[in-house]
Design a protein around this nucleic acid. Sequence first.
DNA 1: AACAAAAATTGTCAAGTGTCCTAAATTTGT
DNA 2: ACAAATTTAGGACACTTGACAATTTTTGTT
Lengths: 225, 225
Amino acid sequence: MTELLKKHNAISVADLAFPPREGGYAKGHETREQILHAALQLLVDHGYRAMSMRRVAAACGMKLGNLTYHFPTREDLVRALLDAVIASYEVEFSAISQNPDQTPEHHLELYCELVLEDIRTKKTTRVFPELWSLTNHDPFVLDRVHELYARARAPLEAIIAKMRPDLDQSQCAALALFISASMEGMTIFAGYEKPFEPRMPALEAIATRAFIDIIRSIAAEDIPD
Amino acid sequence: MTELLKKHNAISVADLAFPPREGGYAKGHETREQILHAALQLLVDHGYRAMSMRRVAAACGMKLGNLTYHFPTREDLVRALLDAVIASYEVEFSAISQNPDQTPEHHLELYCELVLEDIRTKKTTRVFPELWSLTNHDPFVLDRVHELYARARAPLEAIIAKMRPDLDQSQCAALALFISASMEGMTIFAGYEKPFEPRMPALEAIATRAFIDIIRSIAAEDIPD
DNA sequence: AACAAAAATTGTCAAGTGTCCTAAATTTGT
DNA sequence: ACAAATTTAGGACACTTGACAATTTTTGTT
C-alpha cells in the first residue's frame, strides 16, 4: 500500500475475507460470505476452472450439498461473487471524489494510484481476466463487468469535466473511455509476472503525466459526439 | 476492412480458414490446418470450454481417433493454435514497416488502424480473452501471449525511436509499453458489443492523435531507465 | 421440552472430459 | 505392387463436473 493510499482507507477485495468458524452452525450470512471469500481466493489463485463447486466446498471445509444449499447452481455463485467484487470497487473508487484536495490533477493522480495499486496487489485485477471467457456468452456477466468498468470510469469523467469545461458530457465520456482503456490494458500485464515487473515503475511514472497531457491537448473537434 | 488497410493486404486470423475437403485423404498438412481452423472457430464462437477434443473432431467431420492421431493431446492442439495465431499476427504487423510512406506519424496511424480493425472484426481479439484463464497457470501459454504482444509492440518501438531520438532504447520500450497497453485495453471492449459500439468512432478518432501527443510531450527524465 | 425452520451431511445421478487402445479400411507415394 | 500414411469404427478407462434427494444435526422460538 502506497503512502498515497494509506490515508484514504481504500478497501480491497481482500477485505471480503472471513475467518473460518471453529464450531457450530453459521448464523445470518456468515456462511455465504465465507463461501464467497473461498470462491474468490480459488478464482484468483487457481483460475475459474478450479472454482468448481466441489473445490469451493472443500476450501470452506464443508460438504458439497451444503454449498448447493446456499448457492443452488454455480451460476448463482458467480453472480453473487460479481456483486461482491463490484461492491468493493464502489467503495474503493468513491474515495476519490471524497478527497479533500479538490484539484482535478490530484484526483487524477489518485485514480491512477488506485488502479496501479490493484495491479501491484494482483487481487482484483485477476478476477476479470478469469471471467472474460464467460463474458462472451453470459449477458449477465457482460453487464456486470460493464457496470464495474463504468463505476471505475465515473470519477475520471468528473475529473475531465473539470479540466475541460469546453467539452460536453458525451465528449468527456469518450475521453474518459479512452484513458480508462489505457489503465485496463495495463491490468492485462498483471497476468504477466516476470517479464513486465521491471517496467512497472516506468508505467507508474508515465501514467498520470500522460493522461494530463491527453486531457489538455485533445481538441474538442477531434472528439465526435 | 477500411481504406487504409485494403492496400496493404493485411492477413487476419480468418485467413487460417481452410474449406472442408470434399473427397479423398489429406495431403501434407491440410488436415492439421483444417483442425486448427475448426478449433479456432469453436474457441471464438463458443469459448475455450467448447473447444473439446470431441467437438473439434465433430466440427471437422472426422472421428475422435483421427484428431488424436494429428494432435495426441489437447495441449498439443492449444499450442499449435497459439503458434498459428502468432504467425498470422506477425504477417499482419510486418506490413507497417514495409509501408512505403516512411514518416513515423503515418506508421503510427497504420498501427492504430491494425489494432482497431482487429477490434472491429472481433476475430483475433476474442482469442486471448478466452485463453487468459490459461495464461495465469500455464507458463507456455503465458510466454506465447507475451510473445504476441511483444511482436505487436515492436513496430511501435521503432516509431517512437524515430520520433524521439533523445530517448534511449529502454525508454522507448517503456513508452511503447504504455501506448500499446492503451490499445490492448481497447481490445477488452471488443467483448462488449452493444454498449460500447457507439463510442468506437470516438476511440478511433482520438487514438492516433493522443499517442502522437504522448510521444512528443513526455519528458525523457519522466521515464526511468 | 417441543417443534418447525435453517443448516449441514451423505450418497448418488447423468453427462461430459482427456487419453488411450485395437482392428480394419482407405488412400497415398513410390 | 507394396509399404507408409491416413482415416474410420468402435470401445474403454479413470476422472471431473453440476445438480439433486434423502437424511441428520443444529438453531430459534414458543
